[in-house]
C-alpha cells in the first residue's frame, strides 16, 4: 500500500473494512451462559458412562443414552438447543463427583425450570436421603406434606431429569422391593445402591419376610431398615417389625433421624 492508495481509498473505508466475524461458538456460548441453550459431555458413573447437560444455571439433564438419543430426548423434553462439548467445566465435574461419592456439602447447581413445584419438592426431598440408605415412596409423600400422593411421587421420580445427582434410586417401594428406576430398571438400581455400600439382597430378603422397620430393644426406637441408626443396632438387640402400629403397641417410638412412616402413607 502506498500513500496514494490512502488518498484513493479513504481511511474511513479502511476502518470499515476492519469489521470481522465472531468465532462460531461465541453466540452459543452466550446462550448457554444465560440458560437458553445447553452443552453436554460424558461423565463416568457407577452405571458406566453417562452424559450430563448443563447451562449457566446448572445441570439440566443426565442420561446414559447414546449422544443421538440423548440429544433427541433432551430436545423433546426440554426444548432448548444442545451441542456436544469435550468435557464438563472442571468445577462442575468436581462438584458432581463429590456429590456422587456422598459429600452432601458439594453444591451442584440444578436447572429445573419448566417442572412443577410438586416435582421439584419431591426431588429436593430425595436429595436429603443419605448415600447408601433408602426410603419408601410414602416417606417422600409424607415429608412433603402430601401423604396421599404416593403414586404421584413415583411418577415425579420417574421423570427426574438429573438421576444420580438427585438420587431417585434411593427411593423404593413401601413393601421393601426396590421398584422401578428411570436409568435402566431394577438391576441398575441394585447396582447403584450396591456401589453406595447397601446390601440390597439382605434388604430384599428381610422385606420379603414381612419386615418393614427395625427397632432396638435397648433404646426402643424404630427406624427404616437402612437408617444409619438402625444399622448400628447389634444383632441380638435388633428387632424386625412389620408395622409402626405394632412397634408403637410394643412401646417403640419412631427415629428422629429417618422419621419412619407407615405403609399406608401416614406419618407415624
Amino acid at each position: 500500500m502506498t500513500t496514494t492508495d490512502l488518498i484513493d481509498r479513504p481511511l474511513e473505508a479502511d476502518l470499515r473494512a476492519l469489521r470481522t466475524s465472531a468465532p462460531a461458538d461465541l453466540g452459543l456460548g452466550a446462550l448457554v451462559d444465560v440458560g437458553l441453550a445447553d452443552r453436554y459431555a460424558p461423565l463416568a458413573t457407577p452405571l458406566g458412562r453417562a452424559f450430563v447437560a448443563w447451562n449457566g444455571r446448572g445441570v439440566s439433564w443426565i442420561s446414559a443414552a447414546e449422544p443421538a438419543e440423548f440429544e433427541a430426548s433432551f430436545r423433546a423434553r426440554v426444548g432448548r438447543p444442545i451441542r456436544a462439548a469435550d468435557a464438563l467445566p472442571d468445577r462442575l465435574a468436581r462438584a458432581i463427583e463429590r456429590r456422587l461419592s456422598g459429600d452432601r456439602r458439594a453444591r451442584v447447581p440444578l436447572d429445573l425450570r419448566g417442572h412443577t413445584p410438586f416435582e421439584i419438592a419431591v426431588w429436593t426431598k430425595a436429595l436429603e436421603i443419605p448415600r447408601g440408605e433408602v426410603r419408601p415412596y410414602a416417606w417422600i409423600a409424607a415429608e412433603i406434606g402430601r401423604p396421599r400422593a404416593v403414586r404421584a411421587v413415583g411418577t415425579a421420580l420417574a421423570h427426574n431429569p438429573v438421576p444420580l445427582v438427585v438420587p431417585c434410586h434411593r427411593v423404593v417401594r413401601s413393601d421393601g422391593k426396590l421398584g422401578q428406576y428411570s436409568m435402566g430398571g431394577p438391576d441398575a438400581k441394585r447396582r447403584v445402591l450396591g456401589a453406595e455400600g447397601l446390601d440390597t439382597a439382605a434388604l430384599e430378603r428381610e422385606a420379603s419376610s414381612g419386615i418393614r422397620f427395625i427397632g432396638s430393644d435397648t433404646t426402643h426406637i424404630v427406624c427404616h431398615p437402612t437408617c444409619r441408626d438402625a444399622r448400628r443396632v447389634t444383632g441380638r438387640h435388633r428387632v424386625g417389625v412389620g408395622s409402626l402400629e405394632a412397634a408403637a403397641a410394643a412401646g417403640y417410638r419412631p427415629c428422629r433421624h429417618c422419621r419412619p412412616v407407615s405403609v399406608s402413607g401416614r406419618a407415624a
Binding site: R19, S21, A22, L26, G27, A30, L31, V34, A37
Partner: peptide
C-alpha cells in the same frame, strides 16, 4: 427473542 439479538449482534460486538 434473545437468540435473535445474539445472532444480530455477535459479529458487531466481537469487532
Amino acid at each position: 427473542a434473545f437468540p435473535r439479538l445474539v445472532e444480530a449482534q455477535a459479529d458487531r460486538l466481537y469487532t
